[in-house]
Design a protein around this nucleic acid. Sequence first.
DNA 1: CCGAGACTTCGATGCGGGCCGCAGCATCGT
DNA 2: ACGATGCTGCGGCCCGCATCGAAGTCTCGG
Lengths: 233, 233
Amino acid sequence: MVTTAAMAETAAMVGEPARAAMLSALMDGRALTATELARAAGVMPQTASAHLGRMVEAGLLAVERQGRHRYHRLASPAVARMLEGIMAVAGIGLRQAKPVRVGPADAALRAARTCYDHLAGRLAVGIADRMLERGELELSADGGAITASGEAMLGTLGVQAHPDHARKGRLFCRPCLDWSERRPHLAGVVGAALCARCFELGWVTRIDGSRALRVTRAGEAGFAEAFGLAPGD
Amino acid sequence: MVTTAAMAETAAMVGEPARAAMLSALMDGRALTATELARAAGVMPQTASAHLGRMVEAGLLAVERQGRHRYHRLASPAVARMLEGIMAVAGIGLRQAKPVRVGPADAALRAARTCYDHLAGRLAVGIADRMLERGELELSADGGAITASGEAMLGTLGVQAHPDHARKGRLFCRPCLDWSERRPHLAGVVGAALCARCFELGWVTRIDGSRALRVTRAGEAGFAEAFGLAPGD
DNA sequence: CCGAGACTTCGATGCGGGCCGCAGCATCGT
DNA sequence: ACGATGCTGCGGCCCGCATCGAAGTCTCGG
């Protein structure tokens, strides 16, 4: 009885075209802003805001404030599994039907750039992804940590990745939401050290002094060896 | 766009307390009548009927007419997986919260009985379950079939299970919705032959001439050997 | 053939909630 | 300090739909 009420409440969140469109747009794991989600759902921002508030309340979404933006993402893998289950019954091929272009149009910026003192763009997200799936990096609710194997791996690159190197007022390791990819990359002291080391090794160079980076020939080989990243990533 | 509409429509089916209660009551794989589901949901039969019609239309439920009853069950395992996913997000322990007693109160009838010329009750449903999971029996939309391995297994019991034995006007093998268990058991020519053979072997005897059956000592051993059923089943 | 029970359809009612216009905050850029 | 931008809260309109009463269809049992 009371149990089915909770189930209905959860399902009702998905049972609204606007909310379903927003959730579907988030199914690739990215975090999008309220305005972007409003466009994806075809509603006004106020309407989207109300929906997002409800979905956060219901535990479907997690929200992350960053400046004047509020990035929304699926609260857990369980939510993604639920949505896949619903799509399977709805007879939808699991093709995701949303390009939802976000961020800068500049291809070079999207590929690789700096974010303050650390790497960003597809390159940085790719690095974080690999470290996560190899158990070298762990992300928690509000922070992150380099594991022992991660410390060893970074050590071979010449990056000191021990928490003792954290200075006062600086988080040692933290996730930073990538502006163009909308997925976390590596920041904090470790992210800065890795970025500096990449410059030292000549793996990346600045494109005409902008934030955009060019991956050198040595960098392609280095990133491929250290993180298994193909040149396109 | 159009894809998310279908997803919303499907989710909206679950997003109603009454429908959620009905679906939850069906999650154990049984097939229940409209009236039973109305009671489970706490609504009038007319309301339940409308809900059930919508859910059949949406592909969530399958309906099976039998006399003046209409048995409703989940349309596919995908629906059950979807509901489990929703429950997981809703924070509900996967405990099913409905006893929903159905059928006869007589314990003997519920355990084992005849249904016209074949076996019924927990015993018969258990037999069908084992044959299904061992690939000896296959059920399709409107009928069923004994596979080669199933024919061999039944042969060792002395039951001829080849389709040539089907007589005119009699389906060789068909599923029959069990009255008390609300799940399919084996009927048709094969079901009748198996039942007759169980009597021959002395595995079951009628209890004082009623439909209820008693499983003999030899029957317990026989059913355990042939179908892996514990005495309780 | 007739009555009881299971189930459905139709129609009317009422409530919940999506949606947007407008206004109020917070933050960023110049 | 100013306007621009991203986001949220409020009030009101309106559509959709869940619900139930009453009546019709089908099936079973005698």
